[in-house]
């Protein structure tokens, strides 16, 4: 967990006009949700926005409890879409319905998206300069290391045995060696995986144990 970059908690002025909603009880308006996620979108660097999301949603704002946060996170990982944007949508929806979800995802994406559009314009003008390509190659090398580090961290947390290793090997073989479309690999692995871990199966039970 790298929450070193998490901003210092600031005392929140309680929203007196807020109407308490059902379920996980929130006191968040659409505008508050947008601003909170805008701040996350503007300050979460280096990937792994989960730590930022948790420090804002659970610790700082107390909009979600830890159990709900983890539940939403496990849903966000099983669905297509980035973890950050999926988390924004699921949390925003819990807090304020679809308006909350839209505000959250817009907020978390907006700063980076705007910056990347500007970066592309600058790249179009100066992208051929040796100093730019050298710097970007350095960053690309670093990004490669970071991606593999993230993979190792995730794998060491969630690998459950040789079946999962076979899945990983199959994905690499099919995509990188045989150049099968990611779509077919995804569908095949998801279907086979769900069947292997079907209710009552030995694999699912050893997981539950």
């Amino acid at each position: 967990m790298s929450d070193a970059a998490a901003p210092a908690p600031t005392p929140q002025t309680p929203e007196t006009t807020a109407t308490p909603s059902s379920a996980t009880a929130s006191q968040a308006s659409v505008a508050e949700i947008f601003l909170a996620f805008l701040l996350i979108g503007a300050t979460s660097f280096g990937g792994g926005a989960v730590a930022y999301l948790r420090s804002t949603l659970v610790a700082k704002k107390q909009w979600l409890d830890d159990k709900t946060f983890l539940e939403l996170y496990s849903i966000s990982q099983s669905l297509p879409g980035l973890n950050t944007t999926n988390m924004a949508i699921l949390a925003g929806d819990r807090l304020c319905g679809w308006m909350g979800a839209a505000a959250a995802v817009l907020g978390v994406v907006l700063p980076g998206a705007l910056l990347m559009t500007l970066a592309a314009i600058a790249y179009g003008m100066h992208g051929e300069r040796p100093i730019v390509t050298s710097a970007l190659h350095g960053v690309a090398a670093g990004a490669t290391g970071l991606i593999f580090a993230t993979f190792i961290q995730l794998a060491s947390k969630s690998l459950r045995g040789w079946i999962d290793l076979v899945f990983i090997a199959a994905a690499v073989l099919l995509v990188n060696r045989l150049h099968v479309s990611v779509l077919y690999v995804l569908i095949a692995l998801a279907v086979v995986g769900t069947i292997i871990y079907r209710p009552g199966s030995r694999a699912a039970q050893s997981e539950a144990a």
Binding site: Q77, S78, S158, L159, I163, I168, A171, A190
Partner: peptide, 8 residues
């Protein structure tokens, strides 16, 4: 449980 190794 099935999606997890596929995603990895």
């Amino acid at each position: 449980q099935g999606m997890s190794p596929a995603a990895l």
